[in-house]
Computed example of a mutant assay.
Amino acid sequence: MAKVFSLAEVSEHNTNKDCWLIIGGKVYDVTKFLEDHPGGDDVLLSSTGKDATDDFEDVGHSTSAKAMMDEFYVGEINSSTIPKQTKYTPPKQPHYNQDKTSEFIVKILQFLVPLIILSVAVGVRFYTKSSA
């Protein structure tokens, strides 16, 4: 029967001399693999203390890389000790309605354009009377 570890227990193994990862609900001691990892040991060390499944899957490891994992297997993770990820919900903000902004501009123009035309017409009339 596989040994079951808590997240706190696995998190203690977070150095280049003792490095454990959680991937797919399983715990792996990858200390001996740190120097050989194609992405460098920093990538593995940055994935300690958390569920690294998404990190592992996002890279797109080959089937041979996945097969290698068996030799580093040390046990299972007690999933109840891993905090659940919550979905990001953006803060509530008033909705910007571009249509209302353009409605406002149209209303201003509906008022100003006739006023400008009227002013020009009156100005032309006074100019033609005073020059005659």
Rank of each mutant, 00 (worst) to 15 (best):
Y73C: 01
L109E: 10
Q98I: 06
Y127H: 05
I77D: 05
R125M: 12
F104Q: 10
V27T: 04
A121I: 15
L34W: 05
F33N: 06
V30R: 00
E103V: 08
A132P: 02
T86S: 13
S46A: 14
P91D: 06
L34T: 10
V74I: 13
D51S: 08
V10F: 02
D36R: 14
P90F: 11
D51E: 04
S64F: 03
I77F: 10
H13L: 10
P94R: 15
M1A: 13
Y28R: 01
G24C: 10
V59T: 04
S102N: 12
V4I: 15
A121K: 00
I105Y: 14
V122L: 12
D42G: 07
F56L: 00
H37M: 03
L115W: 10
D41N: 15
F111S: 13
T63M: 09
I22N: 04
V4C: 09
I22C: 04
F72H: 09
N16F: 08
L21M: 02
A8V: 08
Q93H: 11
H95K: 15
V27A: 02
G25E: 02
I108Y: 07
L21N: 03
K50C: 11
L7R: 05
Q110M: 07
G123K: 07
D99K: 12
T63A: 13
I105P: 08
T81E: 01
V30A: 01
T48E: 02
H13D: 10
Y28N: 01
S119Y: 10
S130M: 08
L44C: 03
V43I: 11
P90G: 15
I116D: 03
T63I: 09
V74G: 04
S11F: 05
S6Q: 07
H37P: 01
S102L: 14
Q110F: 07
S11N: 07
I116N: 04
D42I: 02
Y73I: 05
S79T: 12
F5D: 05
I105H: 13
H37V: 01
V124W: 06
E71I: 09
F111M: 14
S46Q: 13
T86E: 15
K17R: 12
L45N: 08
I23T: 00
M68A: 11
E57C: 06
T31N: 13
E12L: 15
F72C: 08
K92Q: 14
D36H: 14
T48I: 03
N97H: 07
L112K: 03
G123F: 11
H95I: 12
K92L: 13
K92T: 13
N16V: 04
L34G: 09
L7I: 01
T53Y: 09
H95N: 10
N16C: 10
E71M: 13
G40N: 05
K129G: 03
H13M: 07
K87C: 04
P91S: 06
G75C: 10
K107W: 12
F56D: 00
T63N: 12
F72Y: 15
S64W: 01
S80L: 12
I22Q: 04
L34A: 11
E71P: 01
V59M: 04
D42M: 06
Y96W: 06
M68R: 07
K26P: 00
Y127K: 04
G24W: 06
V59K: 02
P114T: 05
K87M: 11
T15W: 08
